[in-house]
Design a protein around this nucleic acid. Structure first.
Lengths: 333, 333
DNA sequence: CTGTTAGCGCCTTCAT
DNA sequence: ATGAAGGCGCTAACAG
């Protein structure tokens, strides 16, 4: 592998001249610059990343801790990863993936300076990683919005505002018995994703604000469970006239169950989902939805992380992306 | 950040003693080792990755080029990534992700020595990245098995053997009109994943070997298309008595379509899928299947890559993982 | 068993 | 506009 010294010799100039010519950090006569570029091409020179990193104290590597728990939706994870990759690449950063379950390693890559900053996905309430993360000597950005972020930067969708928006849009369309459909809360004291509480809170608050009853329906994503729920709650008891659905894996099944049970949508029941656009658009219907902006979250997180690399003592703050509602086929008007 | 020099001072020994104590590459009296460990703990010392990388000419980073095309199944990609992550971590390697579409960057991370080796997913027939990849000064492993690998190492499932196995198992169970269900081949001269040709070839070869007709059914993954195909081919024409399905996104729909059209399985029709275990087990039925061993492919690829980091001139070779058949609810006997 | 020293390849402050 | 030289933090001969 050719080094700068080789280039310097080949071009008949000094080492530092080569360095400056390549970085452009100081004016170089077009004559010598030319000879240098020729030498670079001839010797197929490429700067060595680790040497540069050592000298600059900067790796151009961004760490990303991704969850690998089997109960988590790989599809959404990959959407996040993709958007983060793209955003990082745009700033000439590479992304180092580590499994979030391997906490030692996650901490280690930043302690050893393998990465300039770290992003952590799948933050849960009372996440016990936060204290350790907060002690790290480099910027850390949480994807999620725990009640106590321990002084770390956070980015997430504003689930509370999103849920409220969904309820208001349904109410405005004449619904007065608006149910919320969600997955069962995890077991006794299992970890709770930070968005679960916030979405639920937004839903109940909006109902309170509008003076209507709230009714939370928890259902596992299995076909039979959903079908049963549709029959009982919608066909027999008719307990609701609208559904706010924060339960991606159940969306497709719900659509089919409604069809099968002859529940007309939006005539008998209006539905608003809280989901990524592609999830709302796939499946058997086109769902009116409050969009979960996965790519924007990823981009924002990268921006926050790299901003802090540039200015290490920006104040901690959490950035919550505002919701927007897109009416489609499952709401009236 | 404390450096080794700080540790040396604090422990009252020389720099190299610290280095050797930490690496264990030379015997150290337990006395001094003790003082060193104490100093390390006290100063919270962590080795600096870029310095070590520069000295060792080794980064402990493995590059992975992942496809980001929208027409590709994120779920499977993430399964691959997960298994590669795990395997790499077991060898104390980290994984750097780059989007495969960004070819310049993919080449660059290895030219600049940011990674010790590179794995490339989503290899297609006549992949025009291969020549450039083959020139790289570090090990490259292709995930996929193109006809011309240009001297690069490859790893993949043996799709040809897998397809043949599926056909034989169906034939052994009395089927004589075995169709193959697959997605439409990409447009006129679109890139073809390497497995498409090989699976198809295995299927036709097995049929020839058994002296039965072959019949390839291509269908897009849309509900209607699948439903229509079931009606026409299975209900009306009854053109086949068994289906070899290499078409993951269609699996769930196929199951429902058969149910809806009253095609009994395995009584009227036997089905063997070529798919990852979880795909075969989810959905409305438990499919008999030739297992697509995603985790094993990932692990093997990592092993091949790191073997070549250790011994840079291992001969190029392609490793094809052998198929195995798991009878479940969609075959007889 | 422990020290001394010369790099690894690049960046950058001085000096010219 | 160009050179010379020291340093980033760690490793590994080479000497005891």
């Amino acid at each position: 592998m050719a080094t700068m010294i080789d280039i310097a010799k080949e071009a008949g100039v000094s080492l530092s001249t080569v360095s400056y010519a390549l970085s452009g950090k100081r004016p170089i006569s077009s004559a010598t610059r030319d000879r240098i570029e020729r030498a670079v091409a001839k010797l197929e020179y490429h700067p060595t990343a680790s040497a540069r990193a050592l000298a600059l104290q900067r790796t151009s590597l961004l760490g990303l801790a991704v969850p690998q728990r089997p109960d988590i939706d790989n599809h959404v994870i990959m959407d996040f990863v993709g958007s983060i990759l793209t955003a990082a690449h745009e700033q000439d950063y590479e992304v180092v993936l580590v499994t979030a379950e391997d906490r030692e390693r996650t901490l280690r890559i930043v302690e050893e300076g393998k990465v300039d900053a770290l992003m952590v996905m799948d933050i849960v309430e009372d996440d016990d990683r936060i204290p350790a993360l907060a002690r790290l000597p480099r910027p850390v950005v949480l994807i999620g919005n725990p009640q106590d972020a321990g002084g770390l930067a956070c980015v997430d969708f504003d689930f509370m505002a999103g849920a409220m928006l969904a309820v208001r849009e349904l109410h405005r369309r004449g619904c007065t018995r608006i149910g919320m459909l969600k997955p069962p809360s995890a077991g006794p004291e299992g970890p709770v994703p930070t968005y679960a509480r916030r979405a639920r809170l937004g839903y109940t608050m909006a109902c309170a604000e509008l003076g209507i009853e709230h009714r939370i329906l928890e259902v596992p994503p299995e076909t039979e469970a959903i079908s049963a729920l549709v029959r009982e709650e919608l066909v027999e008891k008719q307990s609701v006239d609208a559904l706010f659905v924060h339960h991606e894996p159940a969306l497709a099944m719900l659509g089919r169950a409604l069809l099968a049970h002859g529940v007309g949508c939006p005539d008998d029941l209006q539905v608003v989902a809280l989901a990524p656009t592609d999830a709302a658009m796939s499946g058997p219907w086109e769902l009116s939805s409050v969009d979960l902006p996965v790519p924007a979250i990823g981009r924002t997180g990268v921006a926050m992380a790299l901003d802090r690399v540039a200015s290490p003592d920006l104040p901690a703050h959490s950035r919550l992306l505002s919701p927007s509602f897109t009416p489609r086929a499952t709401t009236r008007g």
